[in-house]
Lab assay of single mutants.
Amino acid sequence: ITFYEDRAFQGRSYETTTDCPNLQPYFSRCNSIRVESGCWMLYERPNYQGQQYLLRRGEYPDYQQWMGLSDSIRSC
Protein backbone atom coordinates (compact mmCIF):
# COMPACT_ATOMS: atom_id res chain seq x y z
CA ILE A 1 0.00 0.00 0.00
CA THR A 2 1.26 3.49 -0.84
CA PHE A 3 0.02 6.63 0.88
CA TYR A 4 0.29 10.09 -0.73
CA GLU A 5 0.02 13.44 1.02
CA ASP A 6 -1.79 15.10 -1.89
CA ARG A 7 -4.69 14.15 -4.12
CA ALA A 8 -4.19 12.27 -7.38
CA PHE A 9 -1.08 10.45 -6.05
CA GLN A 10 0.99 13.62 -5.73
CA GLY A 11 3.29 14.92 -3.02
CA ARG A 12 5.34 13.00 -0.51
CA SER A 13 4.58 9.27 -0.38
CA TYR A 14 5.14 6.34 1.94
CA GLU A 15 4.95 2.66 0.97
CA THR A 16 4.60 -0.26 3.37
CA THR A 17 3.90 -3.98 3.17
CA THR A 18 3.31 -4.53 6.89
CA ASP A 19 1.11 -3.19 9.67
CA CYS A 20 2.09 0.23 11.04
CA PRO A 21 0.79 1.35 14.45
CA ASN A 22 1.93 4.94 13.84
CA LEU A 23 2.18 6.54 10.40
CA GLN A 24 2.62 10.11 11.68
CA PRO A 25 6.43 10.18 11.20
CA TYR A 26 6.02 9.45 7.47
CA PHE A 27 3.39 12.00 6.35
CA SER A 28 1.22 14.74 7.84
CA ARG A 29 -1.95 14.05 5.84
CA CYS A 30 -3.21 11.41 3.42
CA ASN A 31 -5.24 12.43 0.38
CA SER A 32 -4.73 9.46 -1.96
CA ILE A 33 -3.82 5.78 -1.71
CA ARG A 34 -2.82 2.93 -4.00
CA VAL A 35 -3.49 -0.60 -2.77
CA GLU A 36 -1.37 -3.00 -4.84
CA SER A 37 -2.81 -6.22 -3.42
CA GLY A 38 -5.02 -7.61 -0.71
CA CYS A 39 -7.18 -5.68 1.72
CA TRP A 40 -6.02 -3.09 4.25
CA MET A 41 -7.72 -1.74 7.34
CA LEU A 42 -6.86 1.93 7.90
CA TYR A 43 -7.45 3.97 11.05
CA GLU A 44 -7.72 7.72 11.65
CA ARG A 45 -5.67 7.54 14.85
CA PRO A 46 -2.42 5.83 15.91
CA ASN A 47 -2.48 2.35 17.46
CA TYR A 48 -5.47 1.22 15.41
CA GLN A 49 -7.90 3.64 17.04
CA GLY A 50 -10.67 5.86 15.70
CA GLN A 51 -12.67 5.63 12.49
CA GLN A 52 -11.64 2.65 10.38
CA TYR A 53 -11.75 2.06 6.64
CA LEU A 54 -11.40 -1.20 4.70
CA LEU A 55 -9.66 -0.70 1.37
CA ARG A 56 -9.40 -3.36 -1.33
CA ARG A 57 -6.95 -3.51 -4.22
CA GLY A 58 -7.29 -0.39 -6.34
CA GLU A 59 -6.59 3.31 -6.64
CA TYR A 60 -8.14 5.97 -4.43
CA PRO A 61 -7.21 9.42 -5.84
CA ASP A 62 -9.06 11.34 -3.09
CA TYR A 63 -9.87 10.50 0.54
CA GLN A 64 -13.58 10.78 -0.28
CA GLN A 65 -13.13 7.77 -2.60
CA TRP A 66 -12.68 5.54 0.46
CA MET A 67 -15.51 7.38 2.26
CA GLY A 68 -12.99 9.18 4.46
CA LEU A 69 -14.28 11.92 6.71
CA SER A 70 -10.91 13.69 6.66
CA ASP A 71 -7.37 13.34 5.32
CA SER A 72 -6.17 11.75 8.57
CA ILE A 73 -4.79 8.20 8.38
CA ARG A 74 -2.50 7.35 11.32
CA SER A 75 -2.24 3.54 11.40
CA CYS A 76 -2.85 0.52 9.18
Rank of each mutant, 00 (worst) to 15 (best):
I1T: 01
T2V: 13
T2N: 11
T2I: 14
F3I: 02
F3V: 00
Y4T: 00
Y4S: 01
E5V: 06
D6N: 09
D6T: 13
R7G: 10
R7D: 04
R7S: 05
A8G: 13
A8T: 10
A8W: 07
F9S: 02
F9H: 02
Q10V: 12
Q10F: 07
G11K: 04
G11Y: 02
S13C: 08
Y14R: 08
Y14A: 09
Y14K: 04
Y14N: 04
Y14G: 02
E15V: 07
E15P: 07
E15K: 15
T16K: 10
T16N: 05
T17A: 10
T17H: 02
T18G: 10
C20M: 14
P21G: 13
P21S: 04
P21M: 14
P21R: 05
N22R: 12
L23A: 04
L23R: 00
Q24D: 15
P25V: 13
P25W: 15
F27M: 14
F27Q: 08
F27R: 03
S28C: 05
S28D: 15
R29E: 10
C30T: 04
C30S: 12
N31I: 04
S32R: 00
S32H: 01
S32A: 06
I33L: 14
I33Y: 00
I33A: 13
I33G: 00
R34S: 05
V35R: 00
V35C: 03
V35Y: 01
E36Q: 07
E36V: 11
E36C: 03
E36L: 07
S37W: 06
G38H: 03
G38A: 10
G38K: 04
W40G: 02
W40C: 12
M41V: 06
M41H: 04
M41F: 15
L42F: 11
L42M: 13
Y43R: 00
Y43D: 01
E44R: 11
R45S: 05
R45W: 09
N47Y: 11
N47T: 06
Q49T: 12
Q49A: 10
G50I: 01
G50E: 02
Q51T: 04
Q51F: 11
Q51W: 05
Q52H: 14
Q52S: 09
Q52Y: 03
Q52D: 15
L54Q: 14
L54E: 11
L55W: 01
R56H: 15
R56P: 05
R57H: 11
R57S: 09
R57Q: 13
R57K: 13
G58M: 03
G58P: 01
E59K: 11
E59V: 08
P61R: 09
P61Y: 10
P61L: 07
D62P: 02
D62E: 07
Y63L: 06
Y63E: 05
Y63W: 05
Y63S: 08
Q64N: 13
Q64K: 08
Q65A: 11
Q65K: 04
Q65T: 06
W66T: 12
W66Y: 14
W66H: 10
G68Q: 10
G68N: 08
G68A: 11
L69Y: 11
L69T: 13
D71N: 10
D71Y: 09
D71S: 08
S72K: 13
I73L: 12
S75D: 01
S75V: 03
C76V: 13
C76S: 13
C76Y: 01
C76W: 02
